[in-house]
Design a binder for these strands. Sequence first.
DNA 1: CGTTGCACTGCAACTCGTTGCATAGGACCC
DNA 2: GGGTCCTATGCAACGAGTTGCAGTGCAACG
Lengths: 180, 180
Amino acid sequence: MALEHAILVSLSERAGSGYELTRRFEKSIGLFWSATHQQIYRVLKRMEEAGWVAVDVVAQSGRPDKKVYTVSDGGRAELVRWLAEPDPSAGPMELAVKIRGATFGDPGAVAAEIVRHRSAHAERLDVYRQIEKRDFPAPAGLQGQHLHQYLVLRGGIRVEEGQVEWFDEVLAALHHEKDA
Amino acid sequence: MALEHAILVSLSERAGSGYELTRRFEKSIGLFWSATHQQIYRVLKRMEEAGWVAVDVVAQSGRPDKKVYTVSDGGRAELVRWLAEPDPSAGPMELAVKIRGATFGDPGAVAAEIVRHRSAHAERLDVYRQIEKRDFPAPAGLQGQHLHQYLVLRGGIRVEEGQVEWFDEVLAALHHEKDA
DNA sequence: CGTTGCACTGCAACTCGTTGCATAGGACCC
DNA sequence: GGGTCCTATGCAACGAGTTGCAGTGCAACG
């Protein structure tokens, strides 16, 4: 699971409380991700026990105390480790977190991970296109069940196309950044 | 959850055992979906208790007996109901199942559901594009953290674009089918 | 002045899904 | 002959995530 790592990235960008993190996840990171406050509170507790984050209880006027979390050395090390670790089962959300976290680790290692996923998705796309060619050579005349199955396949193809194009855009930008 | 309904669609296309369904989910429906045999066995049991499917124990030579499941009248009614029911929280997988199941219900109702989701995603896409314009007016010069945040946003935009295009393709095909 | 809403944390119970293990007979390989 | 794989079902335990509830105290609405 990568909620921990998503929190590490978010806290690396800016320290914050559980409540604040919940708000953030509804927006920026939450383009892909969603998490309830419950989930975040529990994961934060676990992360504190593991020594990845440090807590600072801040009294506030008028409102309840809040626990502001900061990434510790252990957390930074874990984030660097995770960013470089290949994970074939990672989905777009995990990769988005890795990209967003690249600043806090080795951008080259993140790029390498993207390359791996790019080829996996390109292969899949190829399989889908072959199925399309083989099973639906004349899509214009399709009806009923066959049409509906074709449309679902088209969805799969579009998703994979989008992924591959995105990975290419990311890789081009990361290479360009390295050169600059 | 829609695993039940995915199974109803799959069993409507063809009767089968839990084991067989597991295999199917690894392929066709599993373009988007994945489910372990455990999950499927348990859901099938629940569906049987609810009267959505009927079981037929088939003895086989050499291999264990298998339980072949068939959709019952109750199951067909439930599928029709679910296909027509609006579900704002449905993701691409759920919609793919609805599209694939349109044959067994009212394709017009499914199209209406797609229209709803199309406009939701189009709105989101608009929001993302405005964020892009506002926060990243000159993407070519971006570096570090800002670049990485931009790339994630680009991923979100591509995903939404892909969704909207897919919905449009589906709607065009369903309309064309209705006229034919 | 009462209600609604927001900020902030947390417990308890639940659902959904995965993993490990068990069983059992046959096929296939070396 | 022994190992492993495939078909076929299922239990038990676990992990991840959601939902419901609960409490506090200020601010703003009408």
